[in-house]
């Protein structure tokens, strides 16, 4: 072992992270090399000095008050939003405002686009060519008031998510995004999600309930993101949105397979997502 190789192992040796074979080799070198041995000893002495560091121990009062202080901060953060209806504008610059790297913005935007298309295709019959299904199927597919309300929630969430898609198309001189309003819209939708999750109790509505819950997570991320450049939060939110985006896609695929909803005029030749 050369001196250079020996010194490369100092850190692992100091913290006992060398395996037996490497340790033996390391110690054999120290036996025969006064310079390395002296340097290693000095480093060890420094660590022993650092061991003498004392930490002040807070009194029990400190720990007793810890939660109350935190709870006050949580309250301030999660204060109920002003009673304002969610806006239908698509806040295009939101991802840029979050400071996401370009590649991540595109990935998130793509995920949102997939969501939007899937939700649009399978929950909302907005296309002009749509013909209501006939006969017994019509009765079967007649949505309940609750399902209509859930549909409204999904539609609004879709609009919000699609806002992420258009960020690049918007001209730089366009009106700046009203970020607080966007977050308020997310929070309004979150409240609605809370209601829907409880109300959709029928076992046949399980998938719809799960979709509501999955969307809720994405909305929560949007509602809680800070507009300022909060790197760690952004990093975590990014992971969450990506992951949830995939989950949503799978979830919606399942719904599609379970309820094919064949429509005259678009039964063939169209690629399915």
């Amino acid at each position: 072992m050369t001196c250079k190789e020996c010194r490369k192992q100092f850190v692992e040796a100091l913290y006992g992270e060398l395996n037996a074979a490497r340790r033996a080799e390391f110690e054999a070198h120290l036996q025969g090399c006064a310079a390395c041995a002296a340097e290693y000893r000095r480093l060890g002495q420094t660590l022993r000095i650092m061991d003498r560091r004392e930490q002040p121990r807070p009194e029990s009062d400190f720990w007793n008050a810890y939660w109350d202080k935190l709870a006050a901060k949580l309250d301030a953060e999660t204060a109920p939003p002003a009673p304002r209806p969610p806006q239908r504008e698509t806040p295009a610059k939101v991802l840029r405002m979050f400071g996401w790297p370009r590649a991540s913005r595109i990935a998130a935007a793509a995920a949102a686009l997939v969501l939007g298309i899937l939700i649009g295709r399978y929950f909302f019959n907005t296309g002009g060519e749509e013909v209501p299904p006939a006969g017994s199927r019509e009765t079967l597919l007649q949505p309940t008031a609750l399902e209509v309300r859930a549909g409204d929630y999904l539609e609004k969430s879709k609009v919000l998510l699609l806002g992420l898609v258009n960020w690049e198309a918007e001209a730089p001189e366009a009106t700046a995004l009203d970020f607080p309003r966007y977050q308020r819209a997310s929070r309004d939708l979150l409240q609605e999600a809370g209601y829907l999750k409880t109300a959709l109790e029928d076992s046949r509505q399980r998938r719809l309930r799960e979709l509501v819950a999955d969307l809720e997570v994405v909305l929560l991320l949007i509602a809680n993101l800070e507009a300022e450049n909060d790197l760690s939060a952004i990093e975590m939110a990014k992971t969450g949105v990506d992951r949830r985006g995939i989950l949503l896609k799978i979830n919606l695929e399942e719904i599609r397979r379970a309820q094919p909803l064949p429509r005259p005029g678009r039964t063939s030749g169209k690629p399915s997502i």
Binding site: L70, E77, S232, A233, M236, T239, G240
Partner: peptide
């Protein structure tokens, strides 16, 4: 440390 728990609360769904 309080900032950490605020973030943890926000991102616990993740």
């Amino acid at each position: 440390s309080q900032e950490v728990f605020l973030k943890a609360y926000r991102f616990l769904p993740n």
